[in-house]
């Protein structure tokens, strides 16, 4: 019933989707690794980004892929300002407060979007979603292939930023040794805000890659964040490489699950993995080092 070609195609499709999941998870894991908080507003911010992509494409007529770089910059600034001027000051250095502030923020954003856009489902017009590319025996979706390539490039850029630039090194320093970083003249509040901004920029890119084959509603972000959270736990909380590999793995699991159990149960496999990881290896695949 399942020929090797069908299984291979499902696996490749899983990898393609998984790379974009990884991008959503990267933002979450980076913020966790550096600020040591779980950002409950991550899903709502992804929804925001998806609406921004939708508006750029449908209202302003900008090509989705051309809209990604400016939107990434806008979300970098937005995330920076959110952490620096709202989340940081409102939580006064107490992690429990931070959780509540991000939760409150997520409720506020969702309701604002509901008020503005109702709960209608919106997609991009045009039929770019159905473009396919023939690769050997496989027929692959062109927007998903693009999504895969862009997501990998962004992950690579993020890696280079963290390894090669002073700001990136400062981010890694603050993640583990705040006092030592302060004594080097690193402004911890700036680094927190920068990290949060980078997380939001990842969301903007992910939004631009998702929308050509997906829809947007004021609640759409939550579904992705649940998957992203599984990826973060799987890869090890705070591990960037773990988020990338975890994302690819989860993409494949979801796709194969969909093939074997039917589309609607595809995600069930993800949650089985989630529970298994928590039971067997709570630090995640790469958590030992993180």
């Amino acid at each position: 019933m399942y020929t090797p070609a069908i299984v291979a195609e499902a696996m490749v499709n899983g990898l393609l989707t998984g790379a974009v999941y990884a991008l959503v998870a990267l933002g979450l894991t980076l913020v966790y690794g550096v600020l040591h908080i779980i950002n409950f507003a991550h899903g709502a911010l992804l929804t925001c980004a998806m609406f921004a992509v939708w508006a750029a494409s449908e209202l302003l007529g900008i090509n989705v892929y051309l809209a990604i770089p400016p939107l990434a910059l806008i979300f970098l600034a937005l995330g920076y300002a959110l952490q620096r001027f709202v989340i940081g000051p409102a939580s006064r250095g107490d992690d429990a407060n931070t959780l509540l502030v991000t939760l409150g923020l997520s409720i506020a954003i969702e309701n604002a979007l509901l008020a503005a856009f109702k709960s209608d489902t919106r997609t991009l017009s045009g039929d770019a979603a159905f473009d396919v590319v023939e690769l050997g025996p496989m027929l692959l979706s062109r927007p998903r292939l693009i999504g895969f390539a862009v997501a990998l490039v962004v992950a690579l850029l993020l890696w280079a930023l963290l390894r090669r630039t002073d700001s990136g090194k400062a981010i890694r320093a603050v993640a583990r040794e705040k006092m030592g970083a302060s004594l080097m003249g690193i402004d911890v509040r700036h680094i927190y805000a920068l990290t949060f901004g980078i997380g939001c920029a990842c969301l903007a890119v992910a939004a631009g890659l998702l929308l050509p084959t997906f829809y947007v509603t004021p609640r759409v972000g939550q579904a992705f964040v649940l998957v992203a959270f599984t990826i973060v736990v799987l890869g090890g909380m705070g591990s960037v490489a773990g988020a990338l590999l975890g994302g690819l793995l989860i993409g494949v699991v979801e796709s194969l699950g969909g093939l074997l159990l039917g589309e609607s149960l595809g995600q069930a496999g993800i949650f089985v993995i989630f529970i298994l990881v928590l039971l067997l290896r709570p630090t995640g695949l790469f958590g030992a080092r993180a």
């Binding site: 002073d166 090194k169 400062a170 890694r172 320093a173 993640a175 583990r176 040794e177 030592g180 690193i186």
Partner: peptide, 15 residues
């Protein structure tokens, strides 16, 4: 000391 344990000696010095 408060060095950065997750980073190399070189990166610590650079910072």
């Amino acid at each position: 000391r408060k060095i950065f344990p997750n980073m190399s000696v070189l990166e610590n010095l650079e910072l």
